[in-house]
Write a protein that binds this DNA or RNA. Structure first.
Lengths: 157, 157
DNA sequence: ATCAATGCAAATAATTTGCAAAAAG
DNA sequence: CTTTTTGCAAATTATTTGCATTGAT
């Protein structure tokens, strides 16, 4: 029985810490446990709150100091959804090419993958003289069900 | 002889002001002239600097107050390229679906359009129950010429 | 022991806002 | 005239940082 994606990601992050001679403190442990036990996008503030449920001693400064480690490791991705604070996406290790649909009606964020889009991106980039390193695609959309039915089953309609 | 894209966009923005009962002050005029006379992405600070070359009396506050009008009108698009300040893209009126390649080596930003990608986005979004309103696609890439030749003709290699 | 990591509180920096004066319509 | 807009300076707010102390190895 192999590790699930999230467990594998946690392990990879611990290796990352080791490689850099960084220490596994109890606060970092709490933060890591939080990050690699959710599929949700989160803010720094939410991460602080959730981590404190595991270890009361986690401070805001430590969260802000750990976040860059998570993004540098490539296991978490910083996202801008047009708010005045950043979001972090913990699903990047499992789905390095996933895209986002942000619903204006529901405030819901749906992820999807498309090999076709990835292929086109690579072809065009190559033609322009570049090699794709990462990509981010965000679609802002409205909810069709809401439009038809006046309501929808998704999150916050 | 018809207006160029930029001139048309400027006119559309003035109409937008009229519709909202907003006044065309000399400061706004300077800001608008600046915005609709460039193809470059710019920051609030750059817009202030350039606008002041046209009208010394433009203040930072007015720039920051005008920027939301520009984005609300749909003629300028706010962009996040991972810096700690925002960029604004004045090419959105002419090319509502354009995408960006950001070169890690050159710091250069190249725009491109792809109907194919747009089509796929619409198909997938529809399948998931959404109607596409806007999209943004950013590709982070490296420069192939730099890799092969040790240098490249693009901006800052 | 040694050096990294922490919490706290103060600092930073882009952006926003209150207000009295100025300008547009 | 009336209402919007402006510049200024102070406020806001997410994020960062200096420092003395604590904790991991």
């Amino acid at each position: 029985m192999s590790l699930t994606g999230k467990q594998a990601a946690k392990k990879r992050f611990m290796d990352f810490l080791g490689t850099r001679n960084l220490r596994l403190t109890s606060q970092r442990q709490a933060i890591i446990d939080t990050v690699f036990n959710t599929d949700k996008h989160f803010t720094a503030e939410q991460l602080l709150e959730w981590s404190r449920e595991r270890d009361q001693s986690v401070s805001r400064a430590t969260v802000y100091r750990t976040l860059p480690l998570l993004t540098e490791s490539g296991l978490v991705r910083e996202m801008d959804f047009g708010k005045d604070y950043k979001f972090y996406d913990p699903n990047y290790a499992d789905h390095p090419n996933h895209n986002h649909i942000i619903c204006q009606d529901c405030d819901k964020i749906v992820e999807f993958e498309s090999d076709k889009i990835a292929k086109i991106e690579e072809r065009i980039s190559h033609k322009l003289g570049f090699t794709v390193k990462t990509q981010r695609l965000q679609i802002t959309a409205t909810c069709e069900e809401l439009k038809r039915m006046g309501t929808c089953k998704k999150k916050a309609c």
